[in-house]
Simulated scan of single mutants.
Amino acid sequence: MTVVDVVSSRARHLSPGCFARVMATGIVSIDLDQHAMRTLALALFGVNLLAWPILLALTGWRLIRFRRELVADFVDPGRGAGFLTLPAATCVLGSQCLMVVHWPGAARVLAVLGALFWTALTYLFLVATITARTKPGFTRSINGGWLVAVVATQSLAVLAVLLAADNPAGNDDWLFGALCLYLLGAALYLLIITLVVYRIVFFPLRAREFTPPYWINMGALAITTLAGSLFVRHAPMHGPLRELVPFVKGFTLFFWATATWWIPLLLMLELWRHGWRHVPLRYEADDWDIVFPLGMYTVSTYTLAQALGLDVLMIVPAIGVYVSLLAWLLVAGSASRRWYRGVIVGGRRGHLR
């Protein structure tokens, strides 16, 4: 098996949500940097500097060589929303460029790319879903993965606020855009989560159907909290945007409280899935959808505590940073082990044949 064969195989079977690993790695890196673990934060930043272009190249390869499979995934309501991890990951990497290192030029480029990816993929996915002639049933269409649309929107809002804070001169336009994206993301969450809750509460849910993307139920709220908290911290001292700060504070606290409420329920459902129904614990690409919400909840709580002056909340990130790092290490280790078995061991067997 040649290198080209391996790359083609990886590209052909690339998961629509493959960029979730960049999102997870990026937010854990930011989390570590907030807690003065610079070496680890920079190491994960380096991982993302490699992972993002490699995944982008594989996606481009798949678009050129295996377009039919890619289009089939994109128009599938149960899988297509995963492609929105591309703009989300692009913006998370841009946020790393400002929060972990100071590369404002790279952050601006990534913000432009993230905005282009977000606009194109969001509208194309919705148009493809709405205009499809044949549609699967409701239970096979809607899942927690749809909330990546919220994550992508809020990740762009977060990056816009950070860029505004990095260049205070004339930052009102950036902040206004960020606020609009924040409110849009909030509206999308309220719309989509209604469908998700209706699906899991009023239709049978098998243990194997409770997949990691359902953790985005909490993760989408956490990144909304982060976007709102950053806006509160960097809002101008005077002008119309300043008058909206009290509204944003209350709305942001509402989303954080709801994110907190989700965590025990999700943990109980994981115990039901693996402990009661005995679904095996094995690596799947969607596992990164658990790491990202855990890291994002920690970072958003840290930022919210600063924005509202609530030092009592600091106990959450003080513990959460180690939880998110452990989750990243476990998933990354499982992914590396599967890659080794599939590529190295499988490649040797293919060569021997």
Rank of each mutant, 00 (worst) to 15 (best):
residue 256 W to V: 04
residue 260 T to L: 13
residue 290 I to N: 02
residue 264 P to V: 09
residue 274 H to M: 05
residue 252 T to H: 08
residue 262 W to H: 03
residue 296 M to V: 06
residue 266 L to H: 03
residue 279 V to N: 02
residue 254 F to V: 02
residue 285 A to H: 07
residue 275 G to C: 02
residue 283 Y to L: 01
residue 268 M to Y: 14
residue 253 L to W: 14
residue 257 A to S: 13
residue 287 D to K: 08
residue 298 T to I: 03
residue 287 D to F: 11
residue 256 W to M: 09
residue 293 P to K: 14
residue 298 T to M: 06
residue 261 W to S: 11
residue 270 E to L: 13
residue 292 F to Q: 06
residue 287 D to T: 05
residue 265 L to H: 09
residue 255 F to G: 00
residue 287 D to I: 02
residue 281 L to A: 06
residue 263 I to L: 15
residue 259 A to T: 08
residue 296 M to I: 04
residue 293 P to I: 03
residue 282 R to E: 07
residue 286 D to H: 09
residue 281 L to T: 09
residue 285 A to N: 14
residue 272 W to L: 07
residue 272 W to D: 02
residue 272 W to N: 04
residue 251 F to N: 06
residue 273 R to A: 01
residue 270 E to H: 08
residue 274 H to S: 03
residue 286 D to F: 01
residue 272 W to S: 10
residue 260 T to V: 13
residue 269 L to P: 04
residue 264 P to M: 05
residue 254 F to C: 11
residue 288 W to S: 06
residue 254 F to E: 04
residue 252 T to S: 09
residue 281 L to V: 06
residue 296 M to G: 04
residue 254 F to L: 15
residue 294 L to K: 00
residue 279 V to G: 03
residue 272 W to P: 01
residue 259 A to D: 11
residue 286 D to I: 00
residue 293 P to F: 05
residue 265 L to Y: 04
residue 287 D to Y: 13
residue 255 F to H: 14
residue 290 I to L: 13
residue 272 W to I: 10
residue 291 V to S: 01
residue 274 H to I: 09
residue 275 G to A: 03
residue 288 W to I: 07
residue 257 A to V: 07
residue 271 L to D: 00
residue 295 G to Q: 10
residue 274 H to E: 04
residue 260 T to D: 07
residue 257 A to R: 13
residue 288 W to D: 09
residue 271 L to N: 04
residue 251 F to W: 13
residue 292 F to C: 09
residue 289 D to Y: 11
residue 298 T to Q: 01
residue 270 E to V: 13
residue 251 F to M: 15
residue 268 M to N: 05
residue 268 M to P: 00
residue 260 T to S: 14
